[in-house]
């Protein structure tokens, strides 16, 4: 059975260890016929009807934002196969860390109810180590391929956990840019090609599921420590996202990479109705002293002519 999850901070390893196929929602084709009420985020709008489009699956939503949380209210009313994962917004205290661990355990009970099998610790650890190895492969590959290809590798990893063994190097050219923001769907990856066509090269993909969502290597397990605790602590300590309060971890993560990669401009991609990302445009500009272009993701579709002209003008001004 496929289990779709809507946030990179829901451990796919945990789903896999229960005997299910974890799939990031970013690769799922959205239903283009859904009408979007005013003020509703285009990403979140697909969730209430998701299980009708994808029957015989289950859906894990999170409390990362109000829009998704409330989409779960609607989805939950008619569907029993929806799990709302409580992702804490704060990250400074042990009590919140405990809350995160308890949510992972609760998710485990949900998966068992769906017919999954509670994994013995050693099985979970095996899956964790395998996922860790795949992440390492990805980390090695990403700097060597074009932005579009890198984004597709990440998309694929978050879709079904797979990574290719080896790829020929195809380095990126153009004005070095960072693409920052929330969820990007498979159908929106043309944005990266379009950027290249106007002379921009994305050297940092900090969208979702971008490089930002790729956890660092797992630490060694301490004697007596349960694998699930290692997993929870690792995710909790290394989740980098806009909804955190404060979201200084996001800014620290960006600061290092923007500097290392000599980024000259930021493209901030935000879905219409996404307050959390949209509000960061001015702060990003102030924090890094770089030009920021706010790109509205109107719908689940490709870059239109108007946006392409804006992107072209933005890159031209950075040359």
């Amino acid at each position: 059975m496929k289990i779709f999850y809507s946030s990179p901070w829901v451990p796919a390893e945990w789903i896999k260890a229960h005997g299910f196929e974890p799939h990031g929602i970013w690769s799922a084709a959205a239903d283009p016929t859904i009408t979007k009420p005013e003020g509703v985020c285009a990403f979140a709008q697909q969730f209430p009807a998701f299980l009708k489009t994808f029957p015989h699956t289950a859906l894990i939503l999170t409390t990362a934002c109000d829009q998704m949380r409330r989409a779960a209210d609607i989805a939950d009313r008619s569907q029993a196969r929806v799990f709302l994962f409580n992702l804490p917004a704060t990250w400074q205290t042990p009590s919140v860390q405990q809350l995160y661990l308890s949510e992972i355990e609760r998710l485990g009970r949900f998966l068992v109810k769906l017919g999954g099998r509670a994994p013995p610790p050693e099985e979970l650890e095996t899956v964790m180590l395998e996922w860790d190895r795949r992440r390492q492969t990805l980390r090695d590959l990403l700097p060597r391929v074009r932005p579009r290809q890198a984004a597709e590798l990440l998309m694929k990893f978050f879709d079904d956990g797979t990574v290719p063994a080896l790829l020929p190097p195809t380095p990126s050219r153009g004005v070095p840019l960072a693409l920052i923001g929330g969820p990007i769907l498979q159908s929106q990856l043309d944005l990266l090609d379009r950027l290249e066509s106007v002379g921009g090269g994305v050297v940092l993909n900090a969208t979702e599921p971008g490089e930002r969502c790729l956890l660092p290597p797992l630490p060694p397990r301490l004697p007596g420590q349960r694998p699930i605790v290692v997993l929870a602590n690792h995710y909790f300590a290394h989740s980098i996202d806009v909804f955190h309060r404060p979201n200084s971890r996001l800014y620290n993560w960006l600061a290092t990479r923007l500097d290392e990669r000599h980024v000259r401009g930021i493209i901030l991609s935000a879905h219409v109705g996404c307050d959390l990302w949209r509000a960061e445009a001015a702060s990003l500009r102030e924090a890094f002293g770089l030009p920021v272009l706010l790109l509205d993701e109107h719908e689940i579709r490709n870059v239109g002519p108007r946006d392409l002209t804006r992107l072209g003008a933005f890159v031209e001004s950075l040359r």
Partner: peptide, 30 residues
């Protein structure tokens, strides 16, 4: 408070902190 709060407010409060007004955040889970 942060967590199960509306996005507008959370985003604005975060902007406030970026503008130099330190905030003591506390978690209210959904």
């Amino acid at each position: 408070s942060a967590g199960a709060v509306c996005d507008d407010f959370s985003a604005i409060a975060q902007r406030l902190e970026h503008r130099g007004h330190p905030v003591l955040w506390w978690e209210i889970p959904r």
